[in-house]
């Protein structure tokens, strides 16, 4: 066993930071885009006409049954085909994350809306609010508060999932780590460092989710 050379890690930090920026971009786009599309899908399933609601349900169940790696391959293959010219891996990955995450967020949002008691609906409508107003002003704000811990947990899962862009060669934090590790032949040091970084970031996220949960049930 060779002696470890931890010096290689600080030397590669700027490169790894670039990777981390991409990971965070994927996280942000996945969260925001996924929530927006997920809200749409959830509303369609709950209040939409029968056929669009069934399509929305099939979308959610279908995407939740296949691995993210396969979804990434799908879009890496489909997006250039749809656009008609080669695009980098990044647009494909961003689209894949939004569409994949939306399936999960829509289930969280649907459960959140379901957790608001029906008396709230009745009271708001008795006050003369329309269904849209009730949803926007009464139900969604309460649902959001109920969902907050799970949304944070989902963000932690999503952040871990961003590492999977490794399979399409996108230079996120994980891929950058892997490149640096292979270059210098320092696999132990670099992968241990990556594990530590993910552990710290995700533990903080998990802790936040627990704190939010405790505050809610207190």
């Amino acid at each position: 066993m060779d002696a470890f050379d931890w010096g290689a890690v600080p030397a590669a930090l700027p490169f790894l930071l670039d990777g981390m920026q991409l990971s965070l971009l994927l996280l942000a786009v996945g969260m925001l885009g996924g929530t927006a599309l997920g809200l749409l899908v959830a509303l369609l399933r709950l209040f939409g006409p029968r056929i669009p609601a069934a399509i929305a349900a099939a979308y959610v169940d279908g995407l939740r049954a296949i691995p993210l790696v396969l979804v990434l391959f799908w879009f890496y293959f489909l997006v250039p085909l749809a656009i008609g010219r080669p695009v980098g891996a990044l647009p494909s990955a961003l689209i894949a994350f939004v569409i994949f995450e939306a399936a999960y967020y829509s289930e969280i949002i649907r459960a959140g809306i379901g957790s608001v008691r029906s008396g709230q609906w009745q009271a708001a409508q008795a006050l003369g609010m329309t269904r849209g107003q009730t949803l926007r002003l009464v139900v969604l704000p309460q649902a959001l508060r109920a969902m907050l811990p799970i949304l944070v947990t989902q963000a932690v899962i999503l952040f871990q999932d961003t590492s999977l862009v490794y399979v399409i060669g996108l230079r996120d934090f994980m891929t950058a780590t892997s490149i640096s590790a292979e270059e210098g032949g320092r696999l132990v040091e670099f992968y241990a460092f990556a594990a530590l970084v993910y552990l710290i970031v995700c533990s903080a996220g998990t802790e936040l989710a627990h704190a939010l949960q405790r505050r809610r049930s207190a």
């Binding site: 066993m1 932690v156 871990q160 999932d161 590492s163 999977l164 490794y166 994980m174 892997s178 590790a181 696999l187 132990v188 992968y191 241990a192 990556a194 594990a195 993910y198 552990l199 995700c202 533990s203 998990t206």
Partner: peptide, 26 residues
């Protein structure tokens, strides 16, 4: 629970595959 839940599965795969054999006796 904290360690195995907060490190991405991909990183864990690499740790077992690439790192563990280096840390064990030859």
């Amino acid at each position: 629970v904290q360690v195995f839940r907060n490190i991405p599965l991909l990183v864990q795969m690499f740790l077992w595959y690439f790192v563990l054999p280096e840390l064990l006796p030859t």
